[in-house]
Amino acid sequence: MELFLISVIILAVLLLAVAVYAVMQKDLLYATIATGIISLILSVLFFLLQAPDVALTEAAIGIALTTIIFVITIRNTSRREDEILITQESEASKIDDKVKANM
């Protein structure tokens, strides 16, 4: 019982710490990995709280698939959160034309 108590408390504190890190981190790839770690800790907590089905679902979907779709999105967009867009008028209109051609 003591072991259960200590491990649940440690996991709860870790959960909050990793969540704060995921929100505060400017590099989105690190934030995404932190989101995966939230799912990992949550999966262990579900197992400790006698919910093995939910733990298995969270392990398969939360850790692997959600993380990978975030990574794919970051590959196709920008990586830094504080990225400043440098726009010049001519370039912007060229981009617009290209997008319209693709639609």
Partner: peptide, 26 residues
Amino acid sequence: KKHLIKIVIGLSIIDAGIHLLFIAIG
């Protein structure tokens, strides 16, 4: 947050919290 990916990360963190709440009540 201003970045859209950060907003989606926030949504999935809310999801995680609600799941933990449900399991804890049961």
